[in-house]
């Protein structure tokens, strides 16, 4: 074997020359062309631009309110909203619906977390079963496909009638918001695992259980992860819509309270919180994606 050294050295040179070119068809082009600065530096520069963009909007807003181009009663400027936000936990509402700012955040986050995780797990399971069993694909898949486009808000009357006003109803709405579309994309992701890869897997002595855990799921993971991140936005919007439309607690309800009391600062606080939390959670999901799909970020 060592007799072939010179040959393999020739090979190495040839390989080095075409290393970038040969990978091009499969990987995203940007990955092989750009010379990357460190990821930390990129993250800082991104954060810097984010801050700058928002400071710019805040400044324009402030200017608009000061010159009364914007009506400060309807669009309270940041100089009023931010101190209001920081003075919390501000209780709002009356009687049983009385809630604090932090309480509302907790309600919304716990609902979305539970509904989201249950929805994803159920979608993966049902998707796998549909891919695995032909009759299920014929019978269950059309049902899922017709339920997927139903707006999550449409489930609210049903959810409240079924489990009453409160967290279970909100969780149900979140679940319904993502289950259908996530199942459809899980089926697509499992279906698009290359046939040859399955053949090679089988010829390497993979049992049918291991085919799922060691071949199909990892092969579909990049597609699944993208869909999971998209689903989070659907889940986040669904929980807020649900809280606005009858489930009387949480961040969505906080905004409705603001409307009812004509407290636009409260509405603004609600909107800012929803935006910031949604952004932060998406970034967390991105971090999880990097960890989970580590091999895609090696280059």
């Amino acid at each position: 074997m060592t007799g072939n050294r010179p040959e393999s050295e020739i090979f190495e040179n040839a390989a080095a020359e075409k290393a970038t070119a040969s990978a091009a068809p499969k990987t995203r082009a940007s990955r092989s062309i750009t010379v990357k600065p460190s990821r930390m530096r990129l993250a800082w520069s991104e954060a810097g631009w984010l801050l700058f963009a928002w400071l710019l909007i805040a400044a324009l807003w402030e200017l608009g309110a000061y010159t009364e181009v914007l009506n400060p009663r309807i669009l309270p400027p940041p100089s009023e909203t931010i101190p209001y936000l920081l003075q919390g936990p501000a209780p709002a509402g009356i009687g049983a619906q009385r809630t604090t700012f932090l309480g509302a955040i907790f309600d919304t986050l716990s609902r979305v977390a539970i509904g989201y995780l249950l929805g994803i797990l159920a979608a993966l399971l049902v998707g796998a079963l549909i891919v695995r069993y032909k009759p299920l694909r014929r019978v269950c898949f059309p049902i899922v496909q017709t339920l997927a486009p139903v707006s999550p808000v449409a489930w609210i009357p049903f959810a409240i009638a079924l489990v009453g006003i409160g967290s279970p109803a909100a969780i149900f709405v979140v679940f319904m918001a993502i289950f259908g579309s996530m199942t459809v994309s899980a089926v697509a992701a499992f279906d698009s695992v290359p046939e040859e890869m399955l053949k090679v897997g089988r010829s390497l002595g993979t049992s049918s259980t291991h085919m799922w855990t060691r071949v199909i799921i990892p092969a579909a993971a990049p597609d699944l992860m993208v869909m999971a991140r998209m689903s989070f936005f659907a889940a986040w919007m669904a929980v807020l819509a649900g809280e606005m439309a009858g489930i009387n607690s949480g961040l969505g309800y906080l905004i409705i309270l603001g409307q009812q009391m004509y407290n636009m600062k409260l509405v603004m606080v609600g909107i800012i919180t929803i935006g910031v939390l949604g952004f932060v959670i998406d970034r967390l999901l991105l971090l999880i994606q990097r960890r989970l799909l580590w091999w895609e970020y090696r280059r």
């Binding site: 290359p194 040859e196 890869m197 053949k199 090679v200 010829s203 390497l204 002595g205 071949v215 990892p218 092969a219 993971a221 799909l293 091999w295 895609e296």
Partner: peptide, 15 residues
């Protein structure tokens, strides 16, 4: 396992 396959697309597991 007695029969191995090799294709043009290497079909290595990317993960």
């Amino acid at each position: 396992e007695n029969v191995a396959l090799l294709f043009q697309h290497y079909n290595l597991f990317p993960w």
